[in-house]
Write a protein that binds this DNA or RNA. Structure first.
Length: 466
RNA sequence: GGCUGGGUGGCAGAGUGGUGAUGCAGCGGACUGCAACUCCGUUAACGCCGGUUCGAUUCCGACCCCAGCCUCCA
């Protein structure tokens, strides 16, 4: 028995994770709507659930991880109209960009990355089932889910139907039987994207795509469903209602997991507020690994204050791990430790992750492993400690570069290439040998000016870019 | 207003009924020609007020403050 504990939004508590089928764990995570470049807040669930998947894969023989992309949405339509681009092209372009961006963050692609527009048939048939079972009705070209028909509605987001009426910001439309009813299908005008359906040409509402794609790719009941905390209501509440009512199975999702929001300033990072930082722009200045470290530096359910200082600290912390690994003839990366059994990973890191994915504690464990490596007395102890650190790095999706790559990899903007640097180091060595310390220091200062720091040791001088 | 979650050292961020993580930064020392790297040591915290307790940052209650959701949102 693997004792992984996860906080389940449904119960509001940490629960022991017991998969429905221990031979096959099923995970679904909500991806973004692709109408522009995604921001780092969108990267958080990608990184968090990637880390969870790494843990699950080492604990269970088979894990199917599905993460969708919403490529049909009115915001996409609007963005396309504004840019004079076809909706299809725009969505395809930003889908591709999103996949690149999360790869930058060290995310292993999900097993299945379904697109809403590829599942119209499944969506239509699920809506039909809901109509047949009288949970949904047709009205003025729309199909609506009738919220009061589902006695369990509100169980996920913990709100009563009365609360929602009080909130009173639900869209009231005269074609709705109840103000809380939400759209499963809506009519499209000729210039809007649409598909033929029993209710005329139209397009799906937001929530139904996930219900349909989960069912198609994972089945009627799944183990884990993840996503941002801001999706709990209404998206996941509605999705759960649809699936519960359309499927024969009573259980839709056994464990609902929600990651907290990133904040920028004192406010949630959000496109509608306008305070976003795209992964694309951040990765101009910071490595994807630094961004990932920063994302993992907070426990996933807490909100995390994004700032330049956070990134500076993440970079320094990451450098310290890589510094531990540095050494001649040691260019192994964490990928050498991919997909091992759980017992093969350092237990301090595993224990932290098994406790509701406590990544800050896991990182603390990594630093302890790093310190142990730096202090190791002999070659055997060093090799053992190095392996432990790299293995832990795999679980967290870190240390995927060799130490030398990490410290010396440059780009076209750098004023000096490795060859020039090595030549200057040799000149400095000569100067020091000649007792010309002023000359030697001048070279070191010049290099520092160019962003190159030297580290002397008995084995010679090595260098790193700042 | 309702429903969640939270307030820990300069910063980030774990955790615990009594020995007070971890990282970044700081300080002292070792190493070094001097530095950097590294090592050793070290400063410093638990929103506020009550209660329970031999003892609370950790449990209970009130209060203050913050964030999220209640509309599109990761």
């Amino acid at each position: 028995m693997t004792d992984i504990y996860l906080h389940n939004t449904l119960s509001g508590q940490k629960e022991r994770f017991i998969p429905m089928d221990p031979d096959h764990v099923r995970v679904y995570v909500c991806g973004p709507t692709v109408y522009s470049y995604v921001h780092i807040g969108n990267g958080r669930p990608a990184v968090v659930f990637d880390t969870l998947t790494r843990l699950l894969r080492s604990a269970y023989p088979r894990v199917t991880y599905v993460s969708n992309i919403t490529d049909i949405d009115d915001k996409i339509n609007a963005a396309a109209a504004e840019g004079g681009e076809s909706i299809k092209d725009l969505a395809a372009r930003y889908t591709e960009a999103y996949l690149q961006d999360i790869q930058t963050l060290g995310v292993i692609p999900a097993d299945v990355i379904p697109l809403a527009t590829h599942h119209i048939q499944e969506i239509v048939s699920m809506i039909n089932e809901l109509i047949d079972a009288e949970f949904a009705y047709v009205s003025a070209g729309h199909v609506l889910f009738h919220v009061p028909a589902d006695p369990e509605y509100g169980s996920l987001s913990k709100r009563s139907l009365e609360d929602m009426v009080d909130g009173a910001r639900v869209e009231v439309a005269d074609y709705k039987k109840d103000p809380k009813d939400f759209v499963l299908w809506k009519p499209s005008s000729p210039e809007q994207p649409g598909w033929d359906s029993p209710w005329g040409r139209g397009r799906p509402g937001w929530h139904i795509e996930c219900s349909a794609m989960v069912k198609k790719h994972l089945g009627e009941t799944i183990d884990i469903h993840g996503g941002g905390a801001d999706l709990t209501f209404p998206h996941h509440e509605n999705e759960a209602a649809q699936s519960r009512c359309a499927n024969a199975s009573k259980d839709y999702v056994r464990y609902w997991l929600h990651n907290g929001m990133l904040t920028l300033g004192s406010e949630k990072m959000s496109k509608s507020v306008g305070n976003v930082m795209t992964i694309r722009s951040l990765s101009q200045k910071h490595s994807g690994e630094t961004l990932r470290y920063a994302l993992l530096s907070g426990q996933y359910r807490s909100s995390l204050a994004w700032s330049e200082d956070l990134l500076v600290q993440a970079k320094s912390s990451l450098d310290s791990l890589y510094q531990s690994l540095r050494g001649k003839d040691h260019q192994e990366t964490s990928s050498a430790y991919a997909n091992l059994a759980l017992g093969a990973y350092p237990q301090s890191v595993v224990t932290a992750l098994k406790d509701d994915l406590n990544t800050p504690r896991a990182l603390a464990a990594m630093h302890e492993l790093g310190a142990a490596l730096r202090r190791a007395e002999d070659e055997e102890a060093r090799n053992q400690a190095r392996s432990a650190l790299l293995a832990g790095g795999w679980l967290l999706g870190l240390l995927g570069q060799s130490p030398d790559e990490h410290f010396t990899a440059g780009d076209a903007q750098d004023s000096l290439d490795a060859q020039q640097i090595e030549a200057l180091i040799e000149a400095r060595r000569q100067a020091r040998a000649d007792g010309d310390y002023a000359g030697a220091d001048r070279i070191r200062d010049d290099l520092a000016e160019a962003g190159i720091e030297l580290e002397d040791s008995r084995d010679g001088t090595r260098w790193r870019r700042r």
